[in-house]
């Protein structure tokens, strides 16, 4: 796994400072969406090989949620973005 993550607020930090919540790709369905859509959102996950996007929490640093785009084969980290900026429509 990528061992150094460049946090946009704190700089280069070891992965031990972070906790990983999981896949950042699924979109939350609307409250009135079908049961199938909600089941898929809550339980079903792809397990892709290559580039993945995940939510990482910088628990021991700035305590912000980050979206980390990385490769699970080469361990390369492509981008680290504050999840709030992404949610507010910032540059991905």
């Amino acid at each position: 796994m990528a061992s150094l993550i460049t946090c946009p607020h704190c700089g280069r930090r070891p992965k031990e400072e972070f906790s990983i919540r999981g896949d950042a790709v699924p979109e939350r369905p609307t409250p009135v969406a079908s049961e199938e859509a909600w089941h898929a959102y809550v339980y079903l996950r792809e397990n892709p090989r290559g580039t993945i996007r995940e939510y990482w929490h910088h628990a021991a640093g700035c305590r912000r949620w980050l979206v980390v785009e990385r490769d699970n084969v080469t361990h390369e980290v492509y981008a680290v973005t504050d999840a709030r900026d992404l949610a507010k429509g910032g540059a991905a």
Binding site: C10, A60, G61
Partner: peptide
């Protein structure tokens, strides 16, 4: 500490939250 403390990287007056002896 696993953070680079070289004076060019972590300059005087700089601060940050980090893992110190496995404690935040």
């Amino acid at each position: 500490l696993a953070v680079d403390l070289h004076p060019d990287v972590f300059v005087e007056g700089q601060s940050g939250s980090m893992m110190i002896c496995r404690v935040a």
